[in-house]
């Protein structure tokens, strides 16, 4: 994991890492990744991955409209809403 990778990961995670933090961060992350490399030793040939630990299938709901939040509640925790809209940052069009 080099500086460039850290920057790429920081961009993907939308976390601004400042120049000063970068090397500390890198060392810590490397240290942890080093430990994770332990998994390379494990033999997992022909072992399927388990993403859901309980075997549940077909949990679905009926297509019905239920109670929705009113506009005021929806916007309750947002900063500077305008005319019923959430205010967001600038987006290039």
């Amino acid at each position: 994991m080099d500086k460039e990778t850290i920057e790429k990961v920081a961009n993907l995670s939308k976390l601004a890492v400042e120049e000063g933090e970068l090397s500390d961060f890198k060392d810590e992350l490397l240290n942890i990744l080093d430990y994770f490399d332990k998994l390379d030793e494990a033999n997992t040939e022909n072992v399927p991955p388990t993403s859901h630990v309980m075997e549940i299938i077909n949990k679905m709901r009926e297509d019905e409209v239920e109670k929705e939040l009113d506009n005021e509640s929806a916007l309750k925790n947002s900063s500077n809403p305008q005319e019923g809209y959430f205010k967001g940052p600038k987006v290039r069009d």
Binding site: A74, Q82, E83, G84, Y85, F86, K87, G88, P89, K90, V91
Partner: peptide, 8 residues
Amino acid sequence: ARYSLIDY
């Protein structure tokens, strides 16, 4: 505007 508005 220098911001966007969002409707969910």
